[in-house]
Design a protein around this nucleic acid. Structure first.
Lengths: 224, 224
DNA sequence: GCGAATGGATAGTGGCGATCACCACCCGCC
DNA sequence: GGCGGGTGGTGATCGCCACTATCCATTCGC
């Protein structure tokens, strides 16, 4: 596909077109990322020549991973990259930043504050029942309040304990994931792991859903 | 908030401004949705007058739910609404359509087909191990293959059985959700349920993650 | 009767993620 | 030595999307 090139060789440095070929990202887009400071500049060898290395390739791949698979905006990508670059962050803090960058930042729709408060109460109960210490201003809490409010507006009663299985499952998976990455992972790897696990589980969930729907409904598949 | 109005009364019909007030959606946007055929036209009473009813309000809320909470494009919203309107679909088929509308339709990045095949093999093993019957062309499978390929490119080995806990958890939750909605739900309710469950669990997962990270790292929270 | 609201239609906005165009320059190769 | 294509840097431009804005003849409601 990339007609050979030095992909498996010891190419410690390359020009932009080479970087483009190895990453699959078009040259103008790489230039754009450079301009946006998502990608650090290469080391200049002349007025209009610069050399890029493996680190640029890795970062380029990471950007495409975050934006493509993780569906982050470039602004969020920038934040995550900044977190990676500031080496003073533990892998765990880093993971949390990524996790939060993954959740949609809805601009707080003007929902009636009445139902909102009731939902907030429910959410708080869920959180305390779970034994979690989540701060009140956490973006996760905000989002969940909105969702619960919507559920209740729909007539789905959120009895206490309703979310128990979800909470338990989430807890188990979280512990597992954290254990997995406790070992010596560097910044980018932690980030990529978090994103990919998140997305992978969402897909698996959908697969399970589809399968069990198929089980219940013993019919031909609708084929879209 | 909506200065009283007939929100709790028996308003079977209303004008566009009333619809706007009760839904919180600005009039121009409602007009836009009407133009885009996301919202059916009201019953005309004169050349430039039409009456809207509760069904319009519900649909409007559903549109905002799908687009806002579910983060669907209006194109996907349109598909889902069409599925609701074609009454020949079982709740299960409907749920599946929604579930698929929720997953991102990435335009298949030009990844090397080599790693792709290897990942496809892994994914197939995961699926068969889980005992699921997912068709090879299912969009879920496609997406998962891409994610697994990315994971492997990152050096995260996907041994067989690695995803076991995920698969089991997903299965349990799926069964639970399907059970919940087996009873007499109408189209819109099924759709809203699927979307809200999906989003809610994603948030709960993130909460669990944050909590357990906090447990491991007994430090002050970074506060973004 | 008259101001405000309505429907219908066309045009415009703002943000985002690239992509194009241009240009001086530099490298490799004949 | 020269020439053709690649290179960096920059500003402009594009396409898409989800809305908004503007206008106008009509019509409602008081």
């Amino acid at each position: 596909m990339w007609h050979g090139s030095t992909d498996s060789g010891v190419a410690v440095s390359m020009k932009i077109s080479h970087l483009s070929r190895r990453s699959g990202v078009p040259v103008p887009t790489i230039k754009f990322y450079l301009r946006e400071q998502l990608l650090p500049p290469g080391v200049p060898t002349a007025r209009n020549q610069a050399e890029y290395d493996e680190s640029h390739l890795h970062r380029l791949r990471l950007i495409r991973l975050l934006a493509g698979v993780g569906m982050m905006s470039l602004a969020s990508v920038r934040e995550v990259l900044a977190a990676i670059d500031s080496r003073c962050l533990s892998p765990h803090h880093l993971a949390q930043i990524v996790s939060r960058a993954l959740l949609p930042e809805q601009p707080a729709p003007p929902t009636g504050a009445e139902a909102e408060d009731l939902a907030a109460e429910q959410v708080d109960r869920i959180i305390t029942d779970a034994g979690w210490c989540i701060r009140g201003e956490a973006p996760e809490r905000e989002s969940l309040v909105r969702v619960v409010a919507a559920l209740e507006a729909l007539g789905v009663p959120i009895r206490s304990g309703w979310f128990q299985p979800y909470v338990e499952a989430a807890g188990r998976l979280a512990v597992r994931e954290i254990d997995q990455q406790l070992s010596g992972d560097n910044g980018p790897t932690v980030v990529a792991r978090v994103v990919l696990f998140e997305v992978a589980f969402a897909i698996i969930r959908r697969m399970a859903y589809t399968h069990h729907l198929g089980m219940r409904t013993a019919m031909d598949t609708p084929e879209r």
